[in-house]
Write a protein that binds this DNA or RNA. Structure first.
Lengths: 418, 418
DNA sequence: CTGAAAGCGCTTACAG
DNA sequence: CTGAAAGCGCTTACAG
């Protein structure tokens, strides 16, 4: 049986490496020592099932499906179609396991999914068969039969930004443990790209979505709604009470760091930002509000739609100082911009924070270590991922989360640069 | 027809948001304006197909399938089993499209996959039906029927390291364009985690794998071989001629940067490294070889298995200087360590490169911008991803790549720090 | 060029 | 607790 299965296995259809195919040989030659069938009983059962007609075929013979090969065979019709034999996939199926364990496929299915439903002996035989045959469940078949994919679509605007990588880690830690797979999509801050990714993902029938930054596009909202699947929004707090969201107030965070600068005595703070995604714009709103509340005019801004980077930070600092030589503090929309600004100050001989204060946003891993270290806003991005995933999980399990919106807050982290 | 489909659609099984479910209402109420069927002819066709028995059902009525509801209704048998009616999935299927377009499901399938095989008129009707019904193909069904998943498993040791994120971008750009999806696995430099991820991925029956850093684990090699699917190894050059690899010689790169330091006149270079994965160890070998070739003793090393980071770089620098105050240059195994070392020098008042030279590895985006900028080895990680993906694509399409191993090389990038 | 049949590998929904 | 039937939504392999 074992031999047979191995022999039937799908031949390598992809080109064999021009050089000696050592790996392939290794596999083929390798005896299945760990998987040896232990008892004679089991192998006899297997042999019998190979020699007899399959059980299911019997009932078909009693009431043949019209036009089937079997029906024709019985009437002796010469006009029968050739049976459409597919080339064997070579995959070990639940049926193989069932035969090997001398149970029905259903029992195998249960033993795998809900072991408690199956008698210990049967379960043990199934488990042994799984190991012996190297059975790997087919995700496609499971999805098709159960209408649940155990896949979650995750849409983030960037993977270059460490912030979202940490969010992914949080998602992974929560949903991965629950047996979910992810389709990770990098939307590159582009709404067109996001729409495209969404379409691809929809074919995979994800059980849910975890998304960032879809704020403004109606097309995307509609597509998500059409998927009829729960969606949790990350990174901000929705104004819409019908949406599930986990995040914090970007605007309040922008307000807080600006207020901090003002409290420290800086009177002419500027704001530099790249990307200009909705979250950035809300931090900017916070910056402007704080200045106005202090009776100041929020006129110092250098904004660019380019992607954020350390290099860009060096350039934006220069632009800011050219525009406003009296600028005494800069709120950088992200720590990478802040680091670039700091580097540029070092190059120009500007002392930080004495001559110019620099504040960042996000608290990236390196910000605590620069000289001077960077004053910033610490954001709970791992937690955002983890709790958003947890919220989705609850929804998928039919429990209603207590709140539709979780505010994880942020922390002001004063260091040396401001 | 349209209405009917919408009506049958799967109800939201997940809990409705406690607050007004505005999004849901919006979807339900929203008329399908963009999809309005334009011509009277088409709608007539639709209506007809609702009123008549569908073509395919006709044959079923003539020769009922045993046990089906239809058969029982006609025979009036009292002993019939209840038909096992699943709750409808609400999904628009290829059969729905077929009815709408008045063709067979096969024609829809062909029109979608190989439009040239279908007559223009039929194709047009199919395309219209797809839009009208909002048909989304089922990946699970396709995979099950075709035994090809169009999914590729990608295993990288870290997502925190910008290096691998860029590799992912290269893979994305190549394989994404060809319609493949990815299962992105972060192995966290752990072989156990890698084995676990591999098992999960196998259930998805990926068409191929793109992996990094499996060098030493036989368990993983065997699992990959058992998958009977092509595997391309990234980031190094395999010594095994039966493996597909795209990368560069880590050892030569380590040798080159060390030799550069020696040529610049540094006589007492040290090596600091974290993570200690196989690639790191090969760079170290290069470092040692270069020193020996120059008649020097490679005794200055500070190694730690901890994950690499800027913060760690500050600490390793201190350790190195405590161990060897006469150290005059440091080769840091990664640019993040180099940046940390540079920050620490600034803190300690050590002038770089005058008192101590610092060299990094990988050329991360910020390395060009620090003050001083960091001398490093520029590595082709986007290209590694792109070309590895391309190689895999060729294999999957049945073409044999010309070479089983592509050496993308590396570049020495001298800047200010060494 | 088009279509009817069968089947991919599971689970659901029954019955016992 | 266990199993036979049907079906999930496609494509393959035929036949015409």
């Amino acid at each position: 049986m074992k031999k047979n299965l191995t022999g039937d296995a799908k031949p390598a259809e992809w080109p064999v490496n021009p050089n000696t195919s050592k790996a392939a040989k290794r596999t083929a030659a390798q005896p299945d020592t760990t998987n040896a069938v232990p008892s004679g009983t089991v192998s006899r059962v297997i042999r019998r099932s190979k020699e007899q007609a399959p059980r299911h075929a019997a009932s078909a013979a009693v009431a043949p499906v019209p036009g089937s090969a079997l029906a024709d065979a019985e009437t002796g019709a010469a006009t029968r179609r050739k049976p459409h034999r597919r080339r064997p996939t070579g995959r070990v199926t639940i049926a193989d396991v069932a035969k090997h364990a001398n149970v029905s496929p259903m029992t195998v299915s249960r033993a795998l999914k809900n072991p408690a439903q199956v008698l210990p002996e049967a379960r043990a035989r199934v488990e042994a068969a799984v190991v012996a045959l190297g059975y790997v469940p087919s995700h496609a078949a499971r999805t098709l039969a159960s209408a649940r994919s155990r896949v979650v679509g995750v849409l983030v605007p960037s993977l270059t930004n460490a912030v979202f990588v940490e969010t992914l880690a949080g998602i992974q830690d929560c949903l991965g443990a629950a047996g979910y797979q992810f389709l990770i999509g990098n939307t590159s801050y582009s709404s067109a790209k996001q729409t495209e990714l969404l379409s691809m993902y929809l074919t995979h029938a994800p059980d849910g979505f975890l998304v960032t930054g879809i704020d403004e596009s109606d097309a995307i909202r509609e597509r998500l709604a059409a998927a009829r699947v729960p969606v949790v929004h990350m990174y901000d707090l929705s104004r819409d009470p019908s949406e599930w969201t986990v995040g914090f107030s970007q605007q309040n965070a922008g307000y807080a760091i600006t207020q901090y600068l003002l409290e420290r005595g800086y009177r002419r703070p500027g704001f530099i930002a790249a990307q200009l995604d909705p979250r950035t714009m809300r931090r900017r709103t916070g910056f402007r509000r704080a200045l106005r509340d202090a009776g100041l005019d929020p006129d110092l801004e250098v904004l660019t739609p380019e992607p954020s980077s350390v290099g860009l930070g060096t350039r934006l600092l220069v632009e800011m100082l050219e525009r406003a030589p009296d600028c005494d503090a800069i709120f950088c929309n992200n720590d990478d911009l802040a680091l670039g600004a700091l580097f540029e100050c070092q190059r120009l001989g500007i002392r930080v924070p004495d001559q110019l204060a620099i504040a960042g946003f996000n608290d990236l891993p390196s910000s605590a270590w620069s000289t001077p270290s960077i004053t910033t806003v610490t954001t709970p991005r791992y937690q955002i991922g983890f709790q958003a995933a947890q919220m989705l999980l609850q929804i998928l399990e039919g429990k209603t989360p207590k709140k539709n919106r979780i505010d994880l807050g942020f922390t002001l982290t004063p260091r040396q640069s401001a």
